[in-house]
């Protein structure tokens, strides 16, 4: 059952991704992108990952889409230009080769949901077995996130801070720098 839902959502997802690729209207694209994120969030729920779903919904559908819309508004771009110069053959070949490689790799991947596959052994098994006992937190995602792999999360927060600092560096200046000034090197 859940597999069927999963596949259905995935097909939708693929369609949505293609729609993002195809649409020329950029505001429509932003909306489609938001929808894509929402679908991903839905998929995460199906995959027993509510924390991730929660985050994806808030970030993908929320923040990313809002930022995209703001960017569109600020750059006053409505439609994508159709550029004739950019070759599309090379990207296509690269993508097909990469995709083929990945599919080749997935050959040995355990089936979806196979409890005996490697990722569920050893490391993860111990989290489930002892996680609550060792950290006192029943939500294992929180336990792993905050304690076992707390250092990753510290890194994650630092990434957020870095992004904040980066954006401030780029856009913090209230004065807009004009085209010519920049072309001549400030």
């Amino acid at each position: 059952m859940s597999l069927a839902v999963n596949l259905l959502l995935l097909v939708f997802l693929l369609v949505m991704a293609l729609a993002v690729l195809k649409t020329r209207h950029l505001f429509a694209m932003a909306m489609l992108f938001g929808l894509y994120s929402l679908l991903v969030a839905g998929l995460f729920v199906v995959l027993d990952a509510p924390d991730v779903a929660f985050t994806e919904a808030a970030v993908g559908t929320g923040i990313s889409t809002v930022l995209m819309l703001v960017t569109l508004a600020s750059t006053k771009s409505g439609h994508e230009l159709v550029s004739s110069e950019k070759s599309r053959a090379a990207p296509l070949i690269i993508c097909v080769v990469m995709g083929a490689l990945l599919i080749y790799g997935t050959h040995d991947l355990a089936e979806l949901g196979d409890a005996s596959s490697a990722p569920h052994q050893e490391v993860a098994a111990r989290y489930i077995e002892k996680g609550q006992e060792e950290t006192g937190v029943p939500n294992l995602v929180t336990a792993v996130l905050a304690s076992y792999r707390g250092f990753d999360t510290l890194g994650e927060v630092t990434v957020v801070l870095t992004a904040g600092i980066g954006v401030l560096m780029l856009l913090g200046n209230r004065k807009k720098l004009r085209v010519k000034e920049l072309a001549n090197g400030k």
Partner: peptide
């Protein structure tokens, strides 16, 4: 239970992505 580890990793990855 489903495996918490990939979920944890991906929380980080999502954040990296949005950043």
């Amino acid at each position: 239970y489903s495996n918490p580890l990939p979920q944890v990793l991906m929380l980080t990855a999502i954040v990296v992505g949005v950043a």
